[in-house]
Design a protein around this nucleic acid. Structure first.
Lengths: 342, 342
DNA sequence: AAAAATCATGTAATACGGGATCATATCTGG
DNA sequence: CCAGATATGATCCCGTATTACATGATTTTT
């Protein structure tokens, strides 16, 4: 592959001039610029990005870490990121952690090895050790999109998971539900922990009995929703509503309900989370909590750009969610209704 | 950030010794090795990946180009790729082309700039100019996962799109359908072109009338399926079956059929393509054509690894598909049935 | 037992490809 | 003819890994 040397030789100038002609054309006379440009195209010159990054000590690349690439949730977030990244001359490296912490680490390591200028983590499940150095300082430009509770001053962009969960549960309570189950993600993940707290605290606030076995953890996939839905609907004291912390899991619940002959919503209300495109296309259409995915992406990237350009960014941005009521929810059957004095 | 020099100074050895101790520990005495290792961890040394790649002229990175990150189709393919890539010490850079050819090009350019060792394109829509040099030779290690018709000897991994489409249409014909519409992708993409050819040729082979306006192109999203489904179902001579070249589009058709009060499958059969997890969870469950997504990923990566290690790979691998019959298809109403002598 | 050969280990110098700095040459205007 | 601008060149550096070589130690040969 041709290098600046080859171009310089052909154009009859020094390598420094070639470099200038190509990266700062105004620093060189029009005639040499043309000579260089012609020579460059003649030898098929393409700059070596590695050498350039090494010399400038910046890669103009950031890595976006996905907990897993399976969920369509992230694609919109990535779109938001991409828009801003490309506009600012940054390349995106998308890393799929496959829910494994070792893989996650490998993407963070890209910063140490100078291959990326920063990290935008869509995973909240990030050990502090990956973020701080031995002195306890944040050691890299990073933004976490998602709930992150810590003393470490890491900028985060997130929705109010606690409040959003509460809003969903209150919506059900207002309609008279009181046997409200919940299919959520791993509690070790702060996102789901916050939502579950929102759920249980709301139940408590309204003095509703917290029912044994009503809070179930899983990976929030279709099949997990299906299996845990079956488990819940097989209980003697089965719920009249199931809140799922992903739309996929909710769709799994819809399927098992159908198979078990339990009509949704008349005998079972189902609520999802995320408002994926999909949630409008299932039967019945899914009541869910909308997350502004693209905005989450844009905002995170904006924060990261701020950090990269030396500004002190907002330490925390909370974006709004919205309860989208569709067909999968309604008041429970009369005999399962709680009378609430408002 | 600490470099080999710092480590060398602290350990009281030369930089070369440090390099050897860390990358070829057996070439150095146990005692110096320990000294070096301790020094390295003391100063928090992390090798500069750029410098290393520059020196070794290999990045141990390959870029996986996705036509767009939206479709969940690709996530399984990526899983297949990842498995093999990581096992062989390669990092994956996932590039989302967002259906734009300029973005696609930018990912191919990463090879010229030495930032990746090869390209695995899940997009078939690749201009020849990105693959060959001025002498007409393939200029980079590349594998295309998808139909690619060209004189250029580019290794490809794909299903038999023509045959798969034919199989789907014949299944419908066998049940007595003859008004069979098709919602497909852009014909400029060889994948969809092959499927449409399979579709129309099968219709012709069975002497079925090719009906005006029955073949529609789109981006195969939910909403596109919904809109084109409405268009088809509003025709005076509306089809008794719609073949969609993605499961998403098929689900869009299911929705509009429901809204228009057309029962599926009794009055309209719907067939998808891909066999996404989703297709088991919609109502009715979707008849579709299964693609071995993970296998496509693994096979493509295997081919690329062969190329990278200097072997001449198989120029072309065709993987099997399978018609999965579920609830969304059945024979058409009596009055719309074609009598076929078998 | 002395000399030679082998071996293990460490060192210095350099290349990878581009870019920044500083020095030098050329040109312009007063 | 000189000050000041402008254009170009020579050189060194980014951080790593490799090559060729030097040193001392151990074994082999005579």
């Amino acid at each position: 592959m041709a290098t600046v040397k080859d171009v310089a030789k052909l154009a009859g100038v020094s390598t420094a001039t070639v470099s200038r002609a190509l990266t700062n054309p105004e620093m060189v006379s029009p005639i040499t610029r043309l000579k260089v440009e012609k020579a460059a195209s003649d030898v098929g010159y393409s700059p070596n990005g590695l050498a350039r990054s090494l010399r400038k000590s910046e890669s103009k690349t950031i890595v976006v870490v996905l907990p897993n690439i399976d969920s369509t949730f992230f694609s919109d977030v990535v779109h938001g990121i991409e828009a801003l990244a490309h506009k600012n001359g940054y390349k995106l490296l998308i890393g799929d952690a496959g829910n494994e912490s070792s893989r996650l680490r490998s993407y963070f390591d890209l910063f140490d090895s100078k291959q990326v200028d920063g990290v935008l983590s869509l995973s909240s499940d990030v050990p502090e050790s990956m973020i701080v150095n031995s002195a306890g300082e944040v050691k890299l430009p990073i933004v976490i999109a998602g709930e992150y509770f810590s003393d470490i001053p890491v900028p985060t962009v997130h929705i109010d998971n606690h409040y959003s969960a509460k809003k969903g549960v209150e919506y059900l309570i207002m309609m008279g539900h009181y046997k409200i189950a919940c299919i959520t993600g791993k509690r070790s993940n702060p996102v789901y922990n916050a939502r579950v707290n929102g759920h249980t605290e709301t139940m408590k606030k309204w003095k509703l009995p917290s029912t044994e076995g009503y809070i179930l953890e899983c990976d929030l996939s279709y099949i997990a929703g299906y299996n845990l839905g079956k488990q819940l609907l097989s209980l003697n004291n089965k719920p009249s509503a199931i809140v799922c912390h992903s739309d996929e899991a909710a769709i799994g619940v819809l399927k098992i309900a159908r198979e078990m002959g339990i009509p949704v919503p008349s005998e079972l209300s189902v609520i999802g989370f995320d408002n994926l495109a999909l949630s409008e296309y299932c039967v019945p259409e899914l009541t869910t909590i909308h997350q502004p995915r693209q905005l989450i992406g844009e905002t995170s990237m904006k924060l990261l750009l701020d950090i990269l350009s030396g500004k002190k960014p907002n330490p925390e941005m909370t974006l709004p969610t919205q309860l989208i009521v569709r067909e999968s929810s309604c008041p429970p059957p009369i005999d399962q209704r709680l009378q609430v004095d408002l």
